[in-house]
Design a protein around this nucleic acid. Sequence first.
DNA 1: ATAATAAAAGATAACAAGGTCTTTTATTCT
DNA 2: AGAATAAAAGACCTTGTTATCTTTTATTAT
Lengths: 145, 145
Amino acid sequence: MLFSRSTEYAIRTLVYLAMNASESHRIGIKKMAKDLGFPEHFLGKILQDLAKKRVVVSSKGPHGGFYMDDDAKNRSIISVVEIIDGLGFFDQCGLGLCECNEDKPCPIHKNYQIFKGDLFKLLSEKTINDMKEDLIKGVAFMNFE
Amino acid sequence: MLFSRSTEYAIRTLVYLAMNASESHRIGIKKMAKDLGFPEHFLGKILQDLAKKRVVVSSKGPHGGFYMDDDAKNRSIISVVEIIDGLGFFDQCGLGLCECNEDKPCPIHKNYQIFKGDLFKLLSEKTINDMKEDLIKGVAFMNFE
DNA sequence: ATAATAAAAGATAACAAGGTCTTTTATTCT
DNA sequence: AGAATAAAAGACCTTGTTATCTTTTATTAT
C-alpha cells in the first residue's frame, strides 16, 4: 500500500465533503462514517488532524459538523498526504538504504527517482476540486455508499 | 515504504550472496547478518523462505551456509518481491477503493496505472546479476559495511 | 559413534498501525 | 440556566509486522 489507511480515508472524506457539505450545511462524523463506510471514531481522529491544519472547518454543538471552504477545495492531494503521512516516501531509497543519492546511487536509484517524481507531480497537480469535477462529469467513480 | 522490510533485506542479501558466495564458499547467517547489519534471526527467516523457493541453496552442518546458483542470479527483482510481499501492490487502487478499474476508474486511476506499470517493468528487467555488475563497475553503491 | 557446526522450525516478544470507547469541552436551542 | 448536540481529547484495545529466542534436525569431521 502506497499510503496509510488514514491518508486514504482522508482523501475520500475530503472529496465527499467538497461534494456534499457547505458552510450552511455542515455534516457530522456519524453521517460521514455511515455514508463512506469508515469506522466512526477513527474518522473522528483524522478529521481532528485535518481541522487543526485548516483543511476542514469544524464546529461543535447542534448543527455542528464539518465543511470545506473554497480555498481548501483547491488543495492538492499531495498536501493531504503530507499532513497525515508526511512526505518521507519521496526521499526514501527504493531498497531502504540510508546512504543513497546522486553521488552514491543504489542500483535502481535513477529509475526510482523518476517514478517518485512523476507520482509527486500527479499528486501535486490534482486537487480535491478536480476529483469532485471528475466525479460530477462521470469520468471517475468513487463508490460512496 | 514501497516494500516490506523483509523484501528490502532479501534483495540486499541476494546481491551480497551473488557477489561473495559460491558453491565452494557458502556463507552462514551469522556472517551475513554482521556484514549487512541485519538482525540475525530475522535474516534467518527470510533466507528460509528464499531457500524454499529455490532462490538460494542452503546446507546445514559445518561448512554449511548459503549461496546462489547461476540461474538464481538471473532472477528479476520483481520475482523476489513476489516471493516475500506478493504482487498485491500492483493491482491495488491508489486510493484504496475496492471497485476501481478501467470501467469505473477512481480519479487518479489512469496515471497511477501507468506508474505501477513503469515500476513493474523496471523491477522485472533488473536482475540480481545486473545489480552486482553495477556495483562492480562502480556505477552503483550499496554500502555493505 | 560422537562432537561440533549450521540451518530449520516454532514459540514468543516488542512495536507500530489501525480501530474503539469514554470523558470533556464547546455550542445551540428552549 | 438547563438540556441536547456534536466535536475534541485521551485512554485503551486489537492486529499485523518486525524481531528475538529456543529447540530440533541435518551434515561434517574426528
